[in-house]
Design a protein around this nucleic acid. Structure first.
Lengths: 163, 163
DNA sequence: GATAGTTGCTTGCACAGGCAAGCTCAATAC
DNA sequence: GTATTGAGCTTGCCTGTGCAAGCAACTATC
């Protein structure tokens, strides 16, 4: 690997800056890179499995979970937006698609006539119930299950500090 | 919170299934949810900072890092594809855009005339050098720096088991 | 209560990504 | 050699997302 090509020793130039930058990256990011890598691979597998086994995009599953998790199985669109970390338009169109597919119902909110209330349908609930089992199995297989009790506790602690 | 509405006690139906599903989700996913949440928030902040402070999408920065990290600052397109976890077409168009912006050069590979070799330009190297400092600071601020030495080791260990 | 500002949502536009089809070149079989 | 298969990359089409503009309804101030 040619370093500092065609430079007298001691000379400082752009190539040297670059080498220093690379060195810093090597020193300071492996942990973060590992975190990213683990995340990517698990999410990829979860999404793939959800889609092939249940014909359900993982995002849709997430929406179903959030809806089911709330009293009355019903949320304002705005609230979903917060939980999903999606843009307003993104949520809007996502929910339209899911409503067209029959997983939820969009009705005008009763207390605010601009607003839209999103309610889980029976079909949505059924899809959620059907998909959850194998999803949790895979989460366990790829994540939780790979760690022993001590590590789980440690990770809980660490993630709490990072949140 | 109304549960089991309009059902005699002991009856088992869809609502009960749903409740059981929710209960499982509550029991089995909080760790995974925490992981997802931490990942999302950090990535969001890193991407935002990279874009506003350096007019550089985080994906582009990643490409620059991978290119700079390799002897000769040059990679086959196929190799980048592996490291970036992107589809072939995705990489192709991403690299075209970055080449148009002057960050890298796409030339035919010398050993394989179908292939494309991607080489870091001086401008690309300069952009990387300029952006890395504040990026690493933010990574430290949001991630590594929030953990003490023991936790770092623990997390390394955990991520290695998950990889 | 009118007026101004804000909030919740939708829509037009632009852009990035995946898939599948296509093209060129390489490798292998014969 | 020729033929077949496959690898590396690009392009057309479709989908999904964000941004900004727009609209309707709510709130606050006067």
């Amino acid at each position: 690997m040619p370093k500092n090509q065609g430079r007298e020793p001691g000379h400082t130039g752009p190539t040297t800056d670059l080498d220093a930058t690379i060195a810093r990256l090597h020193r300071e990011t492996p942990l973060w890179q590992a975190f990213l890598s683990v995340h990517r691979h698990i999410v990829e597998r979860l999404a793939e499995q959800m889609l092939t086994d249940h014909r359900l995009p993982l995002d849709w599953f997430d929406v179903l979970v959030h809806l089911a998790d709330v009293p009355g199985r019903r949320l304002r669109q705005r609230e979903l937006r917060d939980r999903l970390l999606l843009s307003e338009s993104g949520v809007s169109r996502l929910l339209v698609r899911m409503a067209e597919a029959g997983f939820l119902e969009r009705t005008p909110a009763d207390d605010d006539r601009r607003g839209v209330a999103v309610a889980l349908t029976d079909q949505g609930a059924a899809a959620l119930v059907a998909a959850t089992g194998s999803h949790l199995e895979l989460v366990a297989g790829l994540f939780t299950g790979k760690l022993d009790a001590t590590e789980v506790v440690a990770l809980q602690h660490i993630l709490a500090k990072l949140a």
